[in-house]
């Protein structure tokens, strides 16, 4: 029975992927990408990977759809028709990659094989010793934040790098927004119902983000998901009540500082354990007993992750929307001339 559901969901994934590649309407393909993430999330739930599913739903179906939509505002809605020889080249590249990937799957262990190398190397240690060494019920969090803390540090730095990259490419718009803030009407001014409902929903969303942040030790959740949900609430506010209003609270300098601060918190925890004579990111030195130290360490690094993720998402969204704003204003001026 579960096999049937697996096959059905994977079939839906393939159908969505084909639809994405065949449509020329970028709006439709962004929406389909969100759908693809949602189906993958459902598939991950079936495989008992609730944390991954949560991340996929929050990041893939939620915020990246939003960011791609705001990016589409800059690029236009329709894909240009490619040249014929480029199409052929694309087909060749895709076919070769596909064949190589299929060839690669011959070497991988069977689906759900409990004797595959990944299952009997480190995983048993994590699963059996985690409660004793780390002392938190959610093994995923203890693997992510403690055993493999260095990897997660790398991921956090990658997210910061993404934010810096967007800023470096698009962030140098002249500071003209501040002059005529009041002349910009909120884009959704006429949407009364949306305004009322989002006013009702934004506080619970923020609260939920904090719950996800601090409940990660016990259930699915953690800094990545919490940061994304927090940023989503702010972005919802910005879309309904106007980006300039949200930017008055979350000022550019402040969110840039916060993005760096998250990574700094994470790295400092590592350095602290380094300076106390243990390995980098070995949290057992942070408190009297090693287990208690692990709790502190995990809480601190998850906080760092959450702050960086939320701030970078806001940076990307605000930078895109400032660009759209600028383009529209430039367009207006050109028309006047």
């Amino acid at each position: 029975m579960e096999m049937l559901v697996d096959v059905f969901l994977l079939g839906l994934l393939v159908a969505t992927a084909v639809a994405i590649s065949s449509t020329k309407d970028l709006f439709a393909s962004i929406m389909l990408t969100g759908l693809y993430s949602l189906i993958s999330a459902a598939f991950f739930v079936l495989m008992d990977a609730v944390d991954v599913a949560f991340t996929e739903a929050a990041v893939g179906a939620g915020i990246s759809t939003l960011l791609m939509l705001s990016c589409m505002k800059l690029t236009g809605q329709y894909e240009p028709k490619p040249h014929r020889h480029r199409r052929l080249l694309g087909l060749v590249v895709v076919s070769v990659t596909g064949v190589l990937l299929l060839f690669g799957t011959l070497d991988t262990p069977n689906f759900g094989d409990d004797h595959s190398p990944i299952q009997d190397h480190l995983a048993p240690h994590y699963l059996t010793k985690s409660m004793e060494e780390i002392g938190i019920p959610n093994v995923v969090t203890s693997v992510l934040a403690s055993y493999r803390g260095f990897d997660t540090f790398g991921e956090t730095v990658v997210i910061l790098t993404a934010g810096i990259g967007v800023l470096a490419l698009l962030g140098f718009s002249p500071k003209r927004q501040s002059d005529d803030l009041d002349s910009l009407v909120a884009p959704m001014h006429h949407q009364k119902i949306l305004r009322v409902v989002s006013k009702l929903l934004i506080p619970p969303i923020l609260l939920f983000a904090l719950y996800v942040q601090f409940h990660g030790d016990f259930g699915p959740g953690g800094g990545f998901q919490a940061g994304v949900i927090f940023a989503a609430a702010i972005i919802l506010y910005a879309m309904i009540f106007g980006v300039h209003v949200a930017r008055q609270v979350f000022r550019d300098g402040a969110i840039r500082l916060l993005a760096a601060l998250g990574v700094l918190i994470y790295g400092s925890v590592g350095l602290l354990s380094f300076l106390s004579g243990k390995n980098f990111l070995d949290y057992s030195v942070l408190s009297d007993t090693p287990q208690h130290g692990q709790h502190w360490g995990i809480m601190l690094v998850e906080m760092g992750v959450g702050i960086t993720v939320a701030a970078v998402m806001l940076i990307i969204f605000f930078t895109f929307s400032a660009r759209v704003d600028k383009r529209e204003r430039d367009g207006d001026e050109n028309q006047r001339q």
Binding site: Q191, I193, L194, V197, L200, L201
Partner: peptide, 16 residues
């Protein structure tokens, strides 16, 4: 509660 709040709202926004 969340579904009852969000789903009619999104239908409304979609129709508009």
């Amino acid at each position: 509660k969340l579904i009852w709040l969000t789903s009619p709202t999104s239908s409304h926004a979609l129709a508009k």
